[in-house]
Structures are given as structure tokens and as C-alpha cells.
């Protein structure tokens, strides 16, 4: 189910022209049903070809579990230096920030240095950098703050030679905490930017 939703979302991007047609179709029931069949076939095709390309536009689909193993590149294991799992675990996919700050400390810079090296070596991958905030702030401000953090990470990676076209940013503000207590121990881990690998198909 989880992956199904993701693939469905992916297909929606790929078949944008089809979906436009859908949107402006006046007959809601009949044409909708036939298009559904068409799309299901298309999904099947795409699924067979690029099963691994399941980087969803919204990694935090509301119906999803919070599995971090979203990047299901085949043959991935933490010991394979070209695997996303290696990137996530050995290189480190996230950096943390101080309260209401978006500056990168030396620890964060070291992690990002590693990411830049990895991305240089694995040019098949693009990345979406997510910015997050803790819950101590208003919703809109935290969205803007998360955008600052994600962009700080992106700028740093650019400065290390990663091509701009390979890096996108998205902010979730305070909407997607990974730790849920209302204490600094949790807040510290929620003030983060996370680099999520993608294969480029979802651009």
C-alpha cells in the first residue's frame, strides 16, 4: 500500500498531459472511469520498468508510515558505498540547527562535505533537501525557517561543486517532527535539514 501510493503519485507527474485532460473533462463518471483504467495500465508499465524510482513528491504522505527507507534503490545495503542507505547512515543525511537559526556549524559542514563527495561520485542521484523546525513557533514562520535551513544546506552543497539542477528544497516547517516530546532533547533533533536522494525521475 505504501509503495503503491508513492508510485501512483509518481505516475501522476509523468502523465501530466493525461491528467490535464482529466481535470478539464466535463463528464465526471464515465470518462473518469475509463481514464482510471488507462492510468492503471500505465502505472503497471512504469512500475515494471522503474520500480526503484519511488521517491515520492511528498515523502510524508499522510497515509504513510514514517519509514525512512523511502529510497528503495535496489541492492542497497549499508555496506554498499553507492547505496542510498550508505548515504543515509554512513555519510549522514541530516544536519541539525540551533533555535531559530539556519547557520551551519562545523559538525553540519562536515556532514555536508561528505554528502557533496558522495553526490559527486554517484551522479545518477539527485536530492531534495527538506527543512524542518521544532514546534516552538507559528506555522507560517516555521515554514519560512525550514526553507532557510534547507537552503543553507543547499548553498553549502553548491559551494562544494554539486550542480544546482540536482538539488531541490522543500520546507515542512513544524509539520513533520521525528521526535514528539515537548522538550529540548526532542526539539534539537527536529530542527534539521534532511537530504533525500532521488533518481531524477520525479523532477
Amino acid at each position: 500500500m505504501v509503495a503503491f501510493t508513492k508510485l501512483a503519485a509518481l505516475s501522476s507527474v509523468i502523465f501530466k498531459s493525461e491528467t490535464n485532460m482529466l481535470t478539464y473533462t466535463q463528464e465526471k463518471q464515465s470518462s473518469g472511469a475509463s481514464n482510471m483504467k488507462f492510468l492503471r495500465g500505465a502505472v503497471l508499465l512504469i512500475a515494471a520498468v522503474t520500480l526503484s524510482a519511488c521517491a515520492s513528491p511528498d515523502r510524508f504522505d499522510n497515509d504513510n508510515t514514517t519509514s525512512l527507507g523511502g529510497a528503495g534503490i535496489s541492492d542497497g545495503s549499508a555496506s554498499d558505498p553507492t547505496s542510498p542507505l550508505y548515504f543515509q547512515q554512513a555519510v549522514g543525511d541530516r544536519v541539525l540547527f540551533s533555535v531559530d537559526q539556519s547557520t551551519l556549524d562545523s559538525t553540519a559542514q562536515a556532514v555536508l562535505d561528505g554528502q557533496a563527495v558522495w553526490l559527486a561520485a554517484n551522479s545518477d542521484y539527485n536530492a531534495i533537501i527538506e527543512g524542518h523546525a521544532d514546534e516552538q513557533g507559528t506555522r507560517e514562520y516555521n515554514l519560512a525557517l525550514g526553507a532557510r535551513r534547507a537552503d543553507a544546506a543547499r548553498e553549502y552543497l553548491l559551494s562544494k561543486g554539486v550542480a544546482a539542477a540536482r538539488l531541490k528544497v522543500v520546507s515542512y516547517g513544524k509539520e513533520r517532527p521525528i521526535e514528539i516530546c515537548s522538550q529540548e532533547s526532542c526539539y534539537a533533533l527536529n530542527r534539521r535539514s534532511v537530504t533525500i536522494l532521488s533518481t531524477g525521475l520525479s523532477s
Binding site: S102, L143, A144, R148, D151, A152, R154
Partner: peptide
């Protein structure tokens, strides 16, 4: 509305 681009909102 607000737009965030390049870290600036």
C-alpha cells in the same frame, strides 16, 4: 501570500 525561494520568504 508568501513565496519562499532561495531561503528567503
Amino acid at each position: 501570500y508568501s513565496i519562499s525561494a532561495g531561503g528567503n520568504t
